[in-house]
Design a protein around this nucleic acid. Structure first.
Lengths: 229, 229
DNA sequence: TTACTTAGTGTAAAAATTACACACTATATT
DNA sequence: AATATAGTGTGTAATTTTTACACTAAGTAA
């Protein structure tokens, strides 16, 4: 670390990969750029870190400005700093991911002034992305794939009350493979972090499934032990 | 990402947690600062990212300048950006770790101009560190603990040819617990990434152990599969 | 009442993990 | 030459975990 801090022409930003789940598909939030460079391209939402913000605060603010959401599980996962990643100068960016349940209750607040529009697009059919955002997204997906095996992040994608089938569905989408129903249930229940409710699913035209809730207290007690898929 | 890049008074640095192993202990490289702030304190070696360097390039350069070493396995693991972490201004720092075998063949080149001196200090008895460097170190240790369970990074701490007992020793030091000799050997050999050599250990006053080498080719073939401890 | 759709459940085989102790070999010492 | 010393190297049985696999139950819609 230097004693005398040089005045450098560099910018530090945060880009966010917001994974959303609507009950069917995994999606990410993208904005359509309205200015050069990469005018009309889709890009990850991001912004510059404020002078008096910590990184996590900054990420929360950015998420809030872009979606109106607060209290979402977010984590930094990688810094991208290729000198040529931004055509207009040196921009080092720190990538965060967040997991969000879509639809139903809250609608997302429209995006501020960044873009023509913002949209949740299914990850199975993404457009070409501006800058190195494809790389940032790829690494983010990789990250949550690994993370979901060890940490209870899947619940962030689901409503507070959910069925085991929905939970399994999330795992299958993120991991990109089918899981065995009985083995999945056996294992997930054996972790002891789910609370079975007295309630049943509603509005389905078939046998209603039991609802569960993620039990943060029980999870806190487990801390240190590794969950594993 | 902004269109117009503001001119910000922020500095972006890299700090390095260099883990070294001398056959006995795990150590990290620290420098003793010669200037304010934190004059006379021990600190992690670090430096500012150059304008035309990628982050990894910058980390490699810094490692080289501080130790004379090249070709070392290094990885970024976390960005620290508390607005008050540096008393003289906003400095966001990206932490890297590296694993290095100490002693024997190459001696480390002395440190450039950063400090009064540099030293490898055993992690069991670290001094108070400048800035938030204790936090950076803690997170680094946590990181390699997790990493060593899944990736073949232990070999970086050992000479090219090593015995299974030495390898076990490294695992025990990093994980901070004793492992069963027979089970350890069974498992590590079963991964199939070790090549047994025709050579024996030399210079010991007891039965000489067989030497092994890490087989990068075999490991490359395994890629995708997760090793697990 | 029947057809449809998803919920919910158990077991046996295979694989992985754990716990555990002694004989072997090379050298150093007398 | 005999002995002491110190670390090497090996197998098995018990337990736990993982995997593969298929049918009945419950609720809704026609």
């Amino acid at each position: 670390m230097e004693q005398i801090l040089p005045h450098l022409d560099s910018v530090f930003s945060i880009d966010c990969v917001l994974f959303g789940f609507d009950g069917k598909e995994l999606k990410i939030l993208l904005i359509e750029r309205n200015e050069e460079p990469f005018k009309d391209w889709w890009a990850l939402p991001g912004n510059i870190v404020g002078a008096d913000e910590s990184l996590d605060q900054s990420a929360s603010r950015i998420l809030y400005e872009l979606t109106g959401l607060r209290g979402i599980y977010m984590e930094q996962y990688y810094a991208f700093g290729d000198p040529n990643r931004h055509p207009q100068g040196r921009v080092i960016t720190l990538a965060y991911y967040a997991l969000i349940r879509l639809g139903g209750d809250k609608e997302l607040r429209p995006i501020s002034n960044y873009a023509k529009r913002a949209n949740w697009l299914p990850i199975t059919d993404l457009p070409k992305l501006a800058f190195d955002h494809q790389k940032i997204y790829d690494k983010g997906l990789e990250k949550i794939k690994r993370r979901i095996k060890h940490q209870p992040i899947a619940f962030e994608l689901l409503p507070e009350k959910f069925t085991l089938t929905q939970l399994q569905h999330v795992y299958e989408l993120v991991l990109g493979k089918k899981l065995d129903k009985r083995n999945f249930r056996k294992k997930i229940v054996s972790f002891g972090v789910l609370k079975e409710l007295d309630e049943k699913q509603k509005g389905v035209s078939y046998r209603a499934a039991t609802l569960y809730r993620f039990d943060k207290r029980k999870y806190a007690k487990l801390f240190g032990k590794e969950i594993s898929f």
